[in-house]
């Protein structure tokens, strides 16, 4: 382990704080992205289903 001397608290503190902020940003971005992909896939499936339903209606 590296010896940080008397400044251990500010050095480790700033690394931890920064990595926590970055992790929060990355996590939020990935989560929002995944949620949007799911929502879009769902909406596209719904639209497809609706389109097919109208097609079969026309066939009758």
């Amino acid at each position: 382990m590296v010896d940080l001397g008397k400044y251990a608290v500010p050095v480790i503190g700033s690394y931890v704080a920064s990595l926590a902020l970055l992790a929060a940003l990355v996590g939020l971005t990935v989560w929002q992205g995944a949620r949007m992909v799911r929502a879009l896939r769902q909406a596209e499936a719904d639209a497809e289903a609706a389109a097919q339903a109208t097609e079969t209606d026309h066939a009758h």
Binding site: D3, K6, V11, S18
Partner: peptide, 9 residues
Amino acid sequence: GSTVKIIYI
């Protein structure tokens, strides 16, 4: 001292 390590962030 070791505070210089903060520079990398």
